[in-house]
């Protein structure tokens, strides 16, 4: 595949999706290795242009996921989203900042698997069927796993609200809801 056709297609896919692959890489393994993951992912994409579908984002994230699994497992396991997200610029209401911190802390308290399922849908704009493709299961299975992940997230949210914002009322989930 040295043809201009291949290069055109690769260029188009890269231009359209490299930022999304980067976002996924940060959310899975952190900023330090995100560039490496993006590079490795598009190297595979170049090698496997034949296999790339017309709508390549879930496929690319599936490749990125394999790259994380094979080469950056430690970074993924040790990742703390809270540390990746410094307080947002001023102008943010303190309460919103606290709310985000609690949410990130709750995600951090989850296992990497739960965190991945929740952020695939919540942060990377994938439908549940696309997210299912990324993690390699059926949509039905994905929904079941997402449901369980959400329940664990809600539990962690309650715990983290108490831990991160001790001044908050005892029922933070109620309080957080605007």
């Amino acid at each position: 595949m040295t043809s201009p056709a291949a290069r055109d297609r690769f260029a188009e896919v890269f231009g359209r999706h490299h930022r999304q692959v980067y976002a996924y890489a940060v959310s899975r393994a952190g900023r330090d290795v995100a560039d490496d993951i993006v590079s490795d992912t598009f190297l595979v994409a170049w090698r496997r242009l034949d296999a790339m579908p017309a709508e390549p984002l879930p496929w690319l994230l599936g490749v990125a996921r394999n790259v994380v699994h094979e080469r950056h497992r430690d970074a993924a396991n040790q990742l703390r989203l809270l540390s990746q997200a410094p307080p947002e610029a001023e102008g943010d209401v303190a309460e919103a900042v606290a709310e985000r911190a609690v949410t990130l802390a709750a995600l951090d308290a989850l296992g990497a698997t739960d965190r991945e399922l929740l952020t695939l849908v919540g942060w990377h704009g994938l439908s549940t069927s696309e997210a299912a493709q990324v993690v390699g299961c059926s949509t039905a299975t994905f929904l079941v796993r997402l449901h369980r992940a959400r329940r664990r997230f809600e539990k962690a949210l309650t715990e983290q609200s108490a831990a991160v914002v001790p001044s908050r009322p005892a029922s933070p989930a109620e309080e957080i809801r605007r």
Partner: peptide, 26 residues
């Protein structure tokens, strides 16, 4: 409640996710 959980997650999306460096096509 589940929708609420997903809303909280979506709103907590760190902006660093969108800080991909501009880069030429490899």
């Amino acid at each position: 409640r589940h929708r609420e959980a997903m809303r909280l997650i979506a709103e907590a999306r760190p902006s660093v996710l969108d800080e991909a460096p501009s880069r030429p096509i490899p």
